[in-house]
């Protein structure tokens, strides 16, 4: 504590001083009004700064993301069957006398899902040796052996083959047919007519085809054009490739397929 006598005197003089003694002039009532207004005012809600809000949102997002990833990882781990081994390719088939199909049940997460695993081959598995005192007659149970399990064939969908040009006409009717007749295969909507190849008609002539191509070819600008890309003589793959070079000696036209399709006529066959 202060033991200085001069300071004690100063303290005695200064401490109980009023504003009037100190020469301070201030509005007492105005000060009270200000204070009263503050006391009447409701406490202002603290507004969090935006960076704090953003930081909290980021932390929450990170937490949710981490939790989601962890849960997803746990799910994938749970779905892996832990009992059962895949057959090795090196093991011969003769060494697979006993195959059993274990049924792994994922009881932890999916109680109703059973997973049938691959057959397990027991290699050199020691069998427990049973101590038999007396030889007991072996009674074999009567086994009814069925050579081939009869598989019930699924009913074949009724399909009708139609020409592609008939699709527009048949579509509405088939839709009607499918729903009205209670067709078990409503996704089959088109009937197709089966036509023998000989009934198609005369094949397309080479010259006619080339003319059609020339008529329908779009003119292209010269730049950026590769001749190899748009060869007018290029024939579509669906048509026969015909070797147009005439072999006068044989007087036959040969197909690219290598099959001798020659005729007796001396003129080259162009189709």
């Amino acid at each position: 504590m202060n033991s200085n006598t001069a300071e004690e005197k100063i303290r005695m003089k200064v401490e109980p001083m009023s504003t009037l003694q100190a020469g301070i002039v201030y509005g007492h009532e105005e000060a009270w009004d200000k204070l009263q207004a503050r006391l009447d005012a409701k406490p202002a809600r603290k507004v969090l700064p935006w960076y704090k809000v953003m930081a909290a949102a980021a932390a929450l997002l990170l937490l949710c993301g981490t939790g989601y990833l962890l849960l997803r990882d746990n799910d994938t781990v749970t779905q892996q069957p832990d009992n059962g081994t895949l057959p090795t390719t090196e093991s011969p088939l003769s060494q697979t006398p006993a195959t059993d199909h274990r049924v792994a049940t994922l009881q932890d997460t999916y109680t109703h899902i059973t997973v049938r695993t691959a057959p397990i081959h027991h290699h050199h598995q020691p069998q427990p040796v049973q101590q038999v005192d007396e030889p007991t007659p072996v009674v074999l149970p009567e086994v009814t052996y069925s050579p081939e399990p009869k598989v019930q064939p699924t009913p074949a969908p009724k399909m009708k083959v139609v020409h592609i040009n008939e699709l527009g006409q048949q579509e509405e009717n088939t839709a009607h047919y499918a729903w009205e007749e209670k067709n078990p295969f409503p996704h089959i909507q088109f009937r197709m007519k089966v036509v023998h190849i000989n009934d198609i008609g005369r094949p397309l002539r080479q010259e006619d085809y080339m003319r059609t191509i020339e008529r329908t070819t779009v003119w292209r600008l010269p730049f950026g054009h590769k001749n190899s890309m748009y060869n007018a003589n290029e024939q579509p793959g669906s048509l026969f490739r015909i070797n147009l070079s005439t072999n006068r000696n044989n007087e036959k036209a040969t197909f690219n397929t290598g099959t001798d399709m020659g005729t007796d006529s001396t003129e080259p066959v162009v189709y």
Partner: peptide, 20 residues
């Protein structure tokens, strides 16, 4: 360094307040 005891004797409260 103590203040001389005579310092506070002849000075008024207002004056010492202003000096402080």
């Amino acid at each position: 360094v103590p203040i001389d005891s005579n310092v506070a004797d002849n000075i008024s409260a207002g004056e010492i307040f202003k000096l402080i």
